[in-house]
Amino acid sequence: MEIDSYIDLYRGGLLNNVIPFWAQHSPDVRYGGYFTCLDSHGNVFDTDKFVWLQCRQVWCFSMLYNKVEQKQEWLDTALLGAGFLEKYGRDQNGDWYFSLSREGAPLTQSYNIFSDCFASMAFGQLYKATQNPEHARISVDTFHRILSRKENPKGIYDKNFPGTRPLKGFALPMILCNLVLEIEHLLLPELVESTIQNGINAILHEFYRPEFGLILENITPDGHFSDSFEGRLINPGHAIEAMWFLMDLAERSNNKELAQQATNITLDILEFGWDKKYGGIYYFLDVKGLPPQQLEWDQKLWWVHIETLISLLKGYLHTGDERCWAWFEKVHEYTWTHFADQQNPEWFGYLNRQGEVLLPLKGGKWKGCFHVPRGLYQCWKTLEAIREKKSSEIQFS
């Protein structure tokens, strides 16, 4: 497929398929916020509202308004979610709940700091559209609260016995590398730089293990390998997603060495995580090849594949490594054949190892208006950048 055809596919998939699906079926015009539990046709099958998905959708429609076109209906959709979150989303400490009832009553405590991460991201992006100082204040206050909790993010809700096998997870330093760029316009420059450097250091010098050539999901507090279920866990999608975050940081500082390192790690993880029998990328693996504890380890998930497409395209853009383009075409073919619904809008989320649809939902407790639209946007814009770069190379060759 020619690059122009890829651009048309990703742009059209975003603007003519995925976003109209969420814009039509998701808004709760009665109580505010969004329905995310939607079947293959967009029918609501559960009305609980998961705060991190509410935040992600606020971010998504704000981002489209800011970066694609200033459509009033996109901003109105973002404000519908933001108003609901402002009213019901936080506890008395300012921490964001995990889930709410349709009407906004708390259902699940603020045990998960990722609600906070996406709240900060959402209100930071929304502020760019509205210039409402309250949106900026919520974003910044939440970010500082995240930093204050990062050493013990679950707090009283941590189920592990203290002191026996303490571990620190990859997800938070990974997300902070992306979040700090999202709200850079609201933060002091020195805080931005320290957060970036701490994130890069954690990813490349703690969680990345040269002896395996892979990124671990959990390590000991002093940065060592833990030979346990949790310590041996590899989440290929998480690790590859983090690599395009690093590539964006590399682009920001014109750090070609960092871009190359992130590209090489992407390719190594993908080679390790690719199912050579059925195709697609495994959800979880054990770094030693032992049986993982997660029973869903061999499922194929939507977000893993769309995030991989982003990293491969950005790797190709920044390094010109032809392996990235070859892998992109391979992952693209699998993704669009298996996840994109050929009869109805949006994508399926969950496949079995053989690539068959496990659940016909388009949204639920974990899947919302985020990875697919963000991925389509990122791929669209990165493909355009690749086309422009190639055009310039031809012009000046």
Rank of each mutant, 00 (worst) to 15 (best):
E2W: 01
I3Y: 13
W22N: 06
A23T: 07
S26Q: 05
S26P: 09
G33I: 02
G33R: 01
V44I: 12
D46L: 02
T47Q: 09
D48Q: 13
K49E: 07
R56N: 05
K71A: 11
W74N: 11
G81E: 02
K87M: 11
G89F: 00
R90Q: 13
R90K: 14
N93I: 00
G104L: 10
A105M: 08
P106G: 06
S110Y: 05
Y111N: 11
Y111R: 12
I113D: 09
F118H: 05
A119N: 00
M121A: 09
G124L: 05
L126Q: 04
T130G: 01
N132G: 01
A136S: 07
R137M: 04
K150R: 15
P153N: 02
Y157E: 00
K159R: 07
N160W: 13
G163V: 10
G169F: 07
G169H: 11
G169Q: 06
F170Q: 10
P173V: 11
I175H: 14
I175C: 12
L176R: 08
C177V: 14
N178T: 05
L179H: 02
L181Q: 14
S194K: 11
Q197T: 12
I200Q: 03
E206G: 05
R209S: 09
G213T: 09
I215A: 00
I219C: 13
G231K: 11
I234E: 01
N235R: 13
P236D: 08
F245L: 04
L249V: 11
L249F: 07
A250M: 08
L258A: 11
L258S: 10
I265K: 03
L267F: 14
D275A: 10
K277L: 07
Y282M: 09
L285H: 03
D286G: 06
V287N: 01
L290D: 14
W297D: 07
L301W: 12
V304L: 06
V304A: 12
L309M: 15
L313Q: 06
L317T: 03
L317W: 03
C324S: 06
F328P: 02
E333D: 12
T335E: 04
F339N: 03
Q343W: 05
P345H: 04
L351K: 04
N352C: 10
R353S: 05
F370I: 08
H371C: 08
V372S: 12
Q378L: 15
I386Y: 08
I394V: 12
